[in-house]
Design a protein around this nucleic acid. Sequence first.
DNA 1: CGTCGGTTTGACTGCGTTCAACTTAGGTGG
DNA 2: CCACCTAAGTTGAACGCAGTCAAACCGACG
Lengths: 240, 240
Amino acid sequence: MIDKHLLKLRARDDISADEEAAIRSALGETIMLPADHTFISPGTLLEHSTLVLDGIVCRYKDLSNGQRQITELHVAGDFADLHSFTLQYLDHSVMTLTPCRIVRMPHKALTAITEQYPHLTRVYWFSTNLDAAIHREWELSLGRRSAIQRIAHLFCEMQLRLSIVGLASERHFDLPVTQAVLAECLGLTPVHVNRVLKELRETGLLEFRSGRVTILDLRALRNMADFDPTYLYLERKRPR
Amino acid sequence: MIDKHLLKLRARDDISADEEAAIRSALGETIMLPADHTFISPGTLLEHSTLVLDGIVCRYKDLSNGQRQITELHVAGDFADLHSFTLQYLDHSVMTLTPCRIVRMPHKALTAITEQYPHLTRVYWFSTNLDAAIHREWELSLGRRSAIQRIAHLFCEMQLRLSIVGLASERHFDLPVTQAVLAECLGLTPVHVNRVLKELRETGLLEFRSGRVTILDLRALRNMADFDPTYLYLERKRPR
DNA sequence: CGTCGGTTTGACTGCGTTCAACTTAGGTGG
DNA sequence: CCACCTAAGTTGAACGCAGTCAAACCGACG
């Protein structure tokens, strides 16, 4: 059930059997959520964090004029709001983009983990820092990359993140979101996303149709996007 | 010496005398760094984190074509790279923008803190999550705000963050950086930053001259920027 | 007084937006 | 089974914000 979560954690650090057991016993019941459902709003006091078992979830912030910026996408195995453990309330919303299966971890259980499992605490701290690293990379995209580079980069990121949890190959993965959602991730308009997707298709780099991505030339795509996976911290510089 | 750091922490949570002592005893010697000095590069294994005592520091990421995006500004009282404790190496660079006084905290000392001070551990975890919240707000700026809103927003943020550590009033604060640095924060060109600063000056909102900011109308500035300080987590929703 | 980094201004360009119309795909009910 | 509806995707034309390029200005400092 939480195998994808463990795959994600173990891609970055060792998790002992004891720690795995501690994680399992900290989780509550599994919940299904419909698509397009905002389940966390800014400022609400939170008492548990949300682990995504299946589906796509996003964090987003609104501007008063109705514009929206998605700040991160979450896939199976990710905590969507582990940071709410220390923050207590969030500065952003969290919503499902597809139907999702989630499971909750009470903050009380996380407090117990911080008191009994220092290493696992650091693993989860790491996990929120990984989210921050993704935020930084998106800042770079939003601030400095062209539209075509931004789109290419997002697909590179999702391909790699999904492959860690066994949901992507080098050529294919599902990303069942609309072009409008991509636009909200990338700081673009849906119309322009559409035009750029056409360009990517016509130059033989990538196809995106009805939520399915086909990467035609991964090397060229990464090159065009200036994709450097360092920020996903998949390289272990030394064994712990 | 670390009074600004304590001011920052205590603006968000209670820090006991024991915890304050633990922080003090974890710190190494004070170091002076010149301006425009990159002291952390991506991928380098790090064994201590850097607390800024004085001056302005930034995190930045480079694109292969030489373009640069600053992802966060750090002021006195901030750790510039507390996240390196769990990440071990960083995905970005860290540099001084002014001459800086810094002090280092060995990661070994932080490990000891995580093993002996669960609450202080959560405080520092919170601190890295606050950095992530700032990243998200910058994503919103870079993705959806106009140039004039972005600039106004950055000044609103710095005014509030600096006021917490006693370095800003409602009308004045020092931000001794060039317009080119602002451009690198905001995803704009220096030329356009210059034009927008002129516009802010002429509409009587704000003046920025030789590193000194004069806010002429804070309410109007915040309104124009759509500034909502929630993301700086200065509101304590319940006493701990 | 000359140099250099930083700021300012002008003219022109272009990437991405805006607005609007049309197409396509999927789902629903007669 | 098909008419209808709606959300999503596609395309075209015109616009505008910010970029680009280049030159002039300014102040600090040798």
